[in-house]
Computed example of a mutant assay.
Amino acid sequence: MKSFQLSDNVFDRLNRVLLLGVVSLIAYPLLFILSASVSDPVAVGSGQMWLWPVRPTLAGYERIFENSLIWLGYRNTIMYTVVGTLLHLLLLLPCAYALSRKEVAGKKPIVWMILFTMLFNGGLIPTYLVIKALGMLDTIWAIVIPNAVGAWAMLVAHAFFKQSIPDELVEASKVDGASDFSIFVRVALPLSAPIIAVMALFHAVGLWNQYFNALIYLSDNQRFPLQLILRQILIVNEIGSGDPQAMMDQTGEVRSMLDKVKMAELIKYGVMIVSSLPLLIVYPFLQRFFVKGVLIGSIKG
């Protein structure tokens, strides 16, 4: 008995050490980027700063936020994320619930068709031509409608409804006179908080970080999401740091290239924090649903 207790204690300690190492590997890059965004770039480049800020400065954030387009980018990205996530859930949940019911005819071919789209797609050029033909270029719909419902999300939500909403509960509701729509709204959705939270989080993160669709389908700066505007700020400062003409003032004296490079480095790290901070704030509120949601499909029965 004592040998079992000893082995359990050793196992628990090894687990703690392993988990501590994993947490350190995850936390260190985040802390390094945060510290580097407010540290002297010379200290960062020379290796003096490896954990805590050295000679703190907010010059990088000042340069980022003095650009008036940054707030427009935040507004556009929040709008795209909220509208896109609501549209995603509006389309995903009813379809996944319907496919999870055994009385739905022809659901297996539909599921296979959905699975097929995970392996093949129409490609960039045909998709662009379709969006152009539908008149969605330079509109919010070019961002939120493509990939509004993914095959992976549909299959995961389908598995959740199939496992978590028993047929007996549905049949009992029908005996009480509830319609299929009423069962979905009053029975299935209240029991589906984990899958709703997980699917909303995954899709919202994808929309928040998305820049490629905006780069392809948007040409109006007033509609650019935050990621594209931050990309522009970063590119302008990196180009400015290496352009001799940009370093000449009115008296013909050469500006300090070192100052330009230092500012570009500060902006690079600051951009990472500015783009990631909102998601880091939201995630803890959804964490309790996330653990249960990611385990969907791992246990049958």
Rank of each mutant, 00 (worst) to 15 (best):
A157H: 00
E66T: 15
G301I: 02
A246D: 06
N15D: 12
I131Q: 12
I273R: 07
T139P: 05
D40C: 09
L87E: 06
A153Q: 08
I131H: 10
V54C: 12
A27K: 04
F184G: 12
E238N: 14
M118T: 06
S100E: 02
Y74S: 01
V291L: 13
F181S: 12
D167Y: 14
A159K: 09
E168C: 09
T81L: 05
L34P: 01
D243R: 00
P126M: 05
G297D: 01
F285H: 08
L30K: 03
S35H: 01
Y128M: 02
Q227E: 08
A246F: 06
V54L: 03
G293W: 00
L119S: 13
S173P: 04
L25F: 12
T127E: 06
L34I: 14
E171T: 01
I296G: 09
L72D: 14
V10S: 14
T127V: 09
L14A: 11
D176E: 07
A36R: 02
L279I: 03
V83N: 07
I216W: 02
D259T: 15
N147P: 06
V38G: 07
V17G: 12
L6K: 14
L69P: 06
S192G: 06
T127Y: 05
E62Y: 07
A151Y: 06
E253L: 10
L215K: 01
V254L: 15
A98N: 06
W208P: 04
D259V: 14
R55E: 15
R223P: 02
L87Q: 01
I235S: 15
I239E: 15
I26M: 05
T117K: 01
D243G: 01
L277Y: 13
P166I: 08
T77C: 07
Q5C: 13
V187A: 02
L277T: 09
I64L: 00
G293H: 01
F65C: 07
Q222A: 08
G150C: 11
M49G: 05
Y211C: 09
L86F: 07
Y211M: 08
A204Y: 02
V170Q: 03
R186N: 13
T77G: 04
L30Q: 11
K108I: 03
I183K: 09
I233N: 11
L25E: 14
F160C: 12
L230T: 09
T139K: 02
Y97K: 06
P94C: 04
M136I: 07
K132R: 03
G106C: 06
